[in-house]
Structure formats: structure tokens, C-alpha cells
Design a protein around this nucleic acid. Structure first.
Lengths: 263, 263
DNA sequence: CTGTATGCTGTTAATTTAACAACAACTTCG
DNA sequence: CGAAGTTGTTGTTAAATTAACAGCATACAG
């Protein structure tokens, strides 16, 4: 490609040092970081912008902090970033399952959003979702018949949930649902929040074919609520950074597609 | 309370002038606006922040613009335009009917959007709507419990319609609905599109009190579909540019509030 | 009438951003 | 193999934005 081998490496190391320092101190000013890593103020700002974009840090006027300092801003933006290329690869692979003229369901996950972003040139398609960022993307596409699944707005997820949403899903019958969960193992999928579990289960029931989108970072973990057994899904799409053993185990249960991460 | 009578008035006028100028020019720089309104740069920035918060302007580094700088503008935002100050006046008057703790319904009209923009400091409130621009505004307000009425997305209206929406409305029972129609006379309201009529009728049925928002520009006209008799509404809010005769006739049917247009 | 509180405004200093120039690493092509 | 071109990273400079504090006018209570 281009001049990235040495440059990118030192850049990464530098950003890692910044993250470490901020995580230790809780927060730091830009000029403070200038001295720490020995580059210009401008470069520090550029690093910080990227780290914010990746969801690792928070920026406020005067510096950066480790945690969501105030409240604001859906943590959904937050989730993207780090595994962005994985999610994009997964979405590209999952996209091969979509056929023009069909109907699909997208849940409120960044993985599903990545799918939405790739639906431009498929052909006529009906897409239903409760996820506002996905709606913003899909409303631009003239060939997509968009259905919004309404409900109670959740600022933390930037989506619509609750009984109204479940009922709206229940009224549908679609070809395919693309779902993601916060954790899984060889037999079960899990999620942190009960409210989301209810909606996702309704989606599972409403679709002919259920596709589970998983980026490897969340693979060998559990979470509070059991959501659905792996056997409830018809297809697993996962990136190639996943634990071999787990993938092998999952393969015994459902057809599994491995998404290659581009360099 | 405090020093707001004269100060606030000039402040509002100033912001109005800023909005007018930006809408005319398409965009403007902060320093340019400084000369226009004759206050310090800092105050201009404070005004712009507030106008952005109210959803009237977009800010980018170096100035502000009327539309989403990157994309085209939704045709719905556009409709505002000429009758913008009327609609804002109407909304401000209608707002006096809203009580904290209550629940309200907003239809997919720019008049209802104007109401949404003023809901910031009312107190806890439940608001349901099928209108995407209103959702974008309301999702910012921490005190508002927002319910999205889902349905089939209509690009021409930027809202959700059809059977799913009607069913979602039917599941609700709210204190007050704020509606607008494309035409009215002394006994009847009308609308151009049947699909909208159905949704609005459902809203009428779901609310305890129905408030009709009318800017005078559309008063003495008819439109294709009869929507509902004026007697189905409980309150009419109209700006003071309306035809005297018609207002008098309407007064015989329902309580009517006249919204003063500021200079 | 006086004191206090509240909100709006201006000034200053610090921070952040955009825009451009310089440079290194890699690629391509002769 | 080397020259030219491309791409990505960094630094410099100037402009823009923000926070913080101080000053002033108005409203209200006593």
C-alpha cells in the first residue's frame, strides 16, 4: 500500500502509551501527553481523535478522560470503533445470504448496522429495524422499503424497545434476521440486559432464517441473561480471529461462516 | 424571577435575525454574524449554541449552516420556511396547554415539530410520534420519555405510516394530541393524502384532548380527503394572521387560541 | 430604598481545529 | 536498479472555538 510499516507501528505504540497513561491517571491534558510521548501538540490531538473514534477515550475541552465522564451520547457509538474492521468483514460475509426481493430484520447492534451500510446495491428489499442509526442509513436507499419497529426510546442503545416493539415484531414474518449478542459459548448466547433479550427473542421467532453475527472479541464469555441456545440460530457468521476450539464446537451445532479480516 | 423581560426579548430578536440571515445565505461565519447583530463574538457563539440545541441550525468549524451540511435537506425541513415564525408562535401558544407529567402525541407536521423543539424545560413528559425529525429532536431531551410509533417509512413525509403505525397508535391512550392538517374551513378539516388521514384519525381517537394547529396560510381551503369535522377537536390554535370571519365561525365550534406573531 | 439574586454580556487566556508544507516509506514504471 | 509518483504521518502557523471570570442591568424581597 504505502508508507505505513514503520510509521504505523510507532503510531500505534504511541497511542497505546497514551491510553495506558490516561487509564492510570483517569484523565490527562493534551499538553501533558505531548511531553509524555514527545510529539507535537497537533499529533497528540490527532491521536486523541482517533482514540475517541475507536471508543477508547472521552474527550472534553482541555483534555481526555478514561470513562464516560458525564452522561450523554449513546454508548452505541462507543461500541463501534475497536472491532470496526471485524464487523465490516462479518457484514460483508453475511451479505451474501441476502437475496433481492426478500425481507430482513436488523436488531440494534453495531454488527447489524454494518450490514445496513452495505445494502445499497442489492436490489429491492424490505428491511425492518428498531435501531435508529440503521434507520438513518436505510432511509437514504430508494430501493429499500423501510419499516421502523417503534417502541420506547432507549438513549443508551439509541433504539426502540419494550412492549410496543415486541408487538410490532410479532406482527411481522420475514425471511431473515441478523442478530448479535453480547456473549456466547458453544451452546448458548447471552445478553446483559433483559429488555434487549425480549426484543431479540421476538425477532428470532419472527424470522424464517436467523443469522447470528459475532465478532471474535466477545466469544468465550458469558453475560447475565441467557438469551437463546445456539441451536435456535440457523447460521453463524464470525471473523477469523475467533478461538479455534469454540468455532469447531459451534460448527457441530450450526453452519458457520468465517469472515476474513482484511489487512 | 429575574432580569429577563427586556434582555430576553432582545436576545430572541437577535437570534431570529441570525436564523433569518443564515436561512437566506445558506450559511454564515460567526464573525460575519457579529457585524450583523452588533454583539461580541462570544455572544454570537452562545446564540449559535442555543440555536443548534433547538435544532434550527447546524454548526461546523468556521460557521453555521441551515441544512445538514453534507447531505441534501429533507423536504420536510424545507416546508417550514415562509411560515416559520407563525408556526413557532403557534407552538409557543400551544405549549401552554402542556402540563408536566402528562403524555402527548405529535403527528408528522412541521407544526408539531415546532412544538417538539420547545419541550426542553417543561419537566417530565411522555411524547409519542411517528415523525422522524421530531424523534431526532426529542431524543436529546433527558426528561422526555420518547415513544416512536413505527410503521412503513415514507420518504416524502419523513415519517412512519401504514397499518403498523395505526396499530401502534391504537395501543396508546394519551392526554393530548397536537395535529395539523393541510386545509380547513369552518366545519371540517381536510388532507391531501389518504394514508396520512388514517394515521391522524387514529391519533384523534387515542387522545383525551385534541389540539389542532393551524397556520393561517392554509385556512380557507379544501383538500381532497375529508379528515374530521372541526367538532372532533377540543382546541384550535391559530396565528393572528388568519381570516377574521373564519376564526369567528370556528369559535362557535371549539375554544380557539390566537398566537401573536412577533415582529 | 437597599441588598441580593439571576441572567446576559464582554474580555481575556487557553485550547482546539483547519490548512498547508515537509518528509519518509512504499510502489510503479522505465 | 533508480527516478518519479503516491500515500500516510508529522510539524508549523493562523484561525476559530471554548472556558472562566468580571461587570452590568433587571427583578424581587424586605
Amino acid at each position: 500500500m504505502s508508507g505505513t510499516s514503520k510509521g504505523a507501528r510507532s503510531r500505534e505504540q504511541r497511542q497505546q502509551r497514551i491510553v495506558d497513561h490516561v487509564l492510570n491517571q483517569g484523565s490527562a491534558s493534551a499538553s501533558e501527553l505531548t511531553e509524555l510521548v514527545g510529539v507535537s501538540l497537533m499529533t497528540v490531538h490527532r491521536d486523541l481523535d482517533e482514540l475517541v473514534r475507536r471508543g477508547l477515550l472521552r474527550k472534553f475541552h482541555g483534555g481526555v478522560s478514561a470513562q464516560p465522564s458525564t452522561v450523554f451520547e449513546g454508548s452505541s457509538e462507543y461500541r463501534m470503533g475497536a472491532q470496526r474492521s471485524q464487523k465490516e468483514a462479518i457484514a460483508r460475509t453475511a451479505l451474501t445470504l441476502v437475496e433481492p426481493g426478500g425481507s430482513i430484520l436488523l436488531d440494534d447492534s453495531t454488527s447489524a448496522l454494518a450490514v445496513a451500510r452495505l445494502l445499497a446495491d442489492i436490489g429491492p428489499l424490505t428491511v425492518a429495524t428498531n435501531y435508529l442509526p440503521a434507520i438513518e442509513v436505510l432511509k437514504q436507499l430508494p430501493e429499500v422499503h423501510l419499516i421502523c419497529l417503534g417502541g420506547n426510546y432507549s438513549a443508551t442503545h439509541d433504539s426502540f424497545l419494550g412492549l410496543p416493539c415486541i408487538e410490532a415484531v410479532g406482527a411481522l414474518s420475514v425471511d431473515m434476521a441478523f442478530l448479535s449478542t453480547s456473549a456466547m459459548n458453544a451452546t448458548m448466547t447471552y445478553h446483559q440486559e433483559h429488555e434487549l433479550v425480549q426484543v431479540k427473542r421476538a425477532m428470532l421467532a419472527a424470522a424464517e432464517t436467523n443469522v447470528l453475527l459475532m465478532d471474535s472479541s466477545k466469544m468465550p464469555r458469558k453475560a447475565l441473561h441467557r438469551m437463546a441456545p445456539l441451536s435456535d440460530y440457523d447460521r453463524l457468521v464470525i471473523d477469523d480471529g475467533a478461538d479455534e476450539e469454540l468455532v469447531a464446537a459451534a460448527r457441530d451445532v450450526i453452519p458457520t461462516m468465517i469472515a476474513p479480516i482484511e489487512s
